[in-house]
Simulated assay, not measured.
Amino acid sequence: MFFSIIIPLYNRPQEIDELLDSLTRQTYTQFEVLVIEDGSKLDARDIVESYRNKLDVRYFVKENEGQGFTRNFAFGHARGDYFIIFDSDCLIPPAYLTEVNRYLLEHKLDAYGGPDAAHPSFTPVQKAISYSMTSPFTTGGIRGSKKNLGGQFHPRSFNMGISRKVWEATGGFILTRLGEDIEFSIRIHSLGFKIGLIPGAVVYHKRRTNFRQFYKQIHFFGRARINIYKFFPETLKLVHFFPALFTIFIIFTLLMNILVFPLAVFCNLFLAVFALLIFFHSWMENKSLNVAALSVIAAFIQLTAYGLGFMQDFWKRIILKSS
């Protein structure tokens, strides 16, 4: 099987250098790489060109349209039997393509997703963010499972593959951002294609490098869930309301601590137990007290940021019916 690896890029030359370097160590070598500069002001042409002797790599420049339509552009230029999408802030383990090729030959998936993990070189904050995004105590816990509380498994575009047949049948992404990967996955499901999780197709996903950037990203994800609802109302599940309910509970607890402290005791106790669960679980996972403490902060940021974004667009687009 010949793979086309597709990487949209926007003002992140350092990231593409690290990603391409990781691809030079793949044990399975039947692949090409397409790097698409999506209207960047900081281009990576020289960096990509430096890998010409190490990878079958092609570099494209186009006007800024967002990651969804940029991936469509790449699909139209890809030569592979199977297209693999990575975010530019990923590092790819050497056996990734070997594992994907083996699994696809055995299970005949039309589309797949893979998990993400923290690389040993990540900073403590990046490891904490990675933990939060994959933790069973946050909504991240439903993202890397074959069966989850959110219903069908939906591959996410930081680590996602589709067959050429899927591209030809779907025409690719119809949204360029704000939940475009979930909308795409739902349409793939609706056409009867077989989608699955490849457990061994792990990437090291850097995500954001500080909590402020992380908050902005997750707030965007909360808004994206409402955008998906506008296309597929039936996909909005009870689990998607959990961050909003958690955020309301946090606000209520803060008010009770100011206005009626005795009533806040039980709220404070609940939050303390929740924080301790995250702390000790992260400690066991990461073997670091520092990362464990930061994981508590990351988890609370993830839940409240998602909750606020979700409530913002729920009120605006569903209650007020504004576009």
Rank of each mutant, 00 (worst) to 15 (best):
A128S: 02
K108T: 10
M133S: 05
E99M: 05
T138R: 05
Y103L: 10
T138E: 07
T134I: 12
T138D: 12
A128Y: 01
N101E: 12
Y131W: 02
E106L: 12
L105M: 13
T138Y: 01
Y131E: 05
R102S: 14
T139V: 13
S135R: 02
V125S: 02
S130W: 05
A128M: 00
S130R: 07
E106K: 15
P124Y: 06
L105S: 05
E99Q: 08
R102P: 09
P120L: 15
T123N: 10
L104I: 12
P120W: 14
T138W: 11
R102T: 14
G114P: 07
A117V: 08
S130N: 15
K127Q: 06
L105G: 09
A111W: 03
G114D: 13
A117Y: 11
A111P: 00
I129N: 05
H107W: 04
P136S: 07
R102A: 15
P115Y: 06
T134G: 11
P124E: 02
H107V: 04
P115F: 01
T139K: 12
K108L: 08
Q126L: 10
H119Y: 05
K108F: 10
S121A: 14
H119L: 04
P136A: 06
R102G: 10
S135L: 00
G140K: 10
N101Y: 03
V125N: 03
G114W: 12
P120S: 11
K127D: 02
Y131V: 00
D110W: 01
H119G: 15
K127H: 00
P136N: 05
D110I: 08
M133K: 01
T134V: 08
H107R: 13
L104F: 12
D116R: 12
L109T: 07
L109C: 00
Y131C: 01
P136L: 07
S135G: 00
I129V: 10
S130H: 03
P115W: 00
K108W: 06
H119T: 11
K108G: 09
V100A: 03
S132C: 04
A128V: 04
L105F: 07
Y112K: 04
A111D: 04
S132M: 03
L105A: 14
L104V: 13
K127S: 03
E106R: 15
R102Q: 14
A111R: 10
